[in-house]
């Protein structure tokens, strides 16, 4: 059943991505001020949205683990956080390249970039911590604590770095302020978000299956030792 869902989602995501690519590269004109480079937005924004909501979801799942003590929550939290970290990396990398071309620097010490990097580091630490603990229940407990504290801390960092001068453009999406983009240009962002979300769902499902494998290996090892 799970295999079928994964394959179905993969076909859907691939089709949607191909269609989006077609729209982005052949249908849409270059942007007035930035030229061709603005097309990075179709990956930059969805990847960051996915990364951010993934970290938030990871925190909720970690709380879920702490409340229920059910290891499946922990496995799901770990999978979601790891996939989110990949999307956060994509967001950072595309952002950096975009900044190089438009602002002339690889990295601007703007509050959103900086706090996003802090967030990236925190959850990178989360994954490193998971590797350093062998005992599954202890690992789940520690990871959940780090996830909750990390998310709270990431939000506080975001707010505190906001004092600094900022160079990043204000939000251009219509959900925030009624839209600063031409109508035809915004829609592909949301379609791409959907496609990448499907893609990340696939990744999370694969990761979940791996967590199940790891748990099974662990149980079998224990049995082997008990014999």
């Amino acid at each position: 059943m799970r295999e079928k869902i994964i394959i179905g989602l993969a076909i859907f995501a691939a089709g949607l991505l191909a269609w989006n690519m077609n729209t982005i590269f052949t249908q849409l004109p270059d942007e007035l001020n930035q030229g061709a480079i603005y097309r990075i937005i179709y990956f930059h924004v969805p990847a960051n949205i996915l990364g951010m909501s993934g970290f938030g979801l990871g925190m909720l799942l970690s709380i879920g683990y702490l409340v229920t003590k059910d290891l499946r929550y922990d496995a799901l939290a770990a999978s979601v956080t790891e996939v989110s970290l990949v999307f956060a990396s994509i967001g950072l990398a595309t952002g950096s390249i975009w900044a190089r071309i438009i602002w002339g620097v690889w990295w601007a010490w703007d509050y959103r970039l900086t706090s996003w990097l802090v967030c990236w580091l925190i959850f990178g630490g989360y994954l490193m911590l998971r590797r350093a603990v062998d005992e599954p229940i202890q690992r789940a407990r520690f990871a959940a604590v780090v996830s909750v504290l990390g998310t709270v801390n990431a939000y506080i960092s975001y707010k505190s770095i906001e004092w600094w001068n900022t160079q990043h453009p204000q939000p251009v999406l219509s959900i925030r302020n009624g839209g600063g983009m031409a109508p035809g240009m915004e829609a592909p962002i949301w379609w791409n978000l959907l496609a990448l979300a499907c893609f990340s769902a696939i990744l999370v499902m694969v990761r979940m299956r791996q967590e199940a494998f790891a748990r099974e290996i662990d149980t079998l090892r224990r049995m082997a030792h008990a014999q």
């Binding site: 990075i40 990956f43 930059h44 994509i90």
Partner: peptide, 9 residues
């Protein structure tokens, strides 16, 4: 930029 995104993925 797009290459980097795909590469990471």
């Amino acid at each position: 930029g797009l290459g980097a995104a795909w590469l990471i993925m």
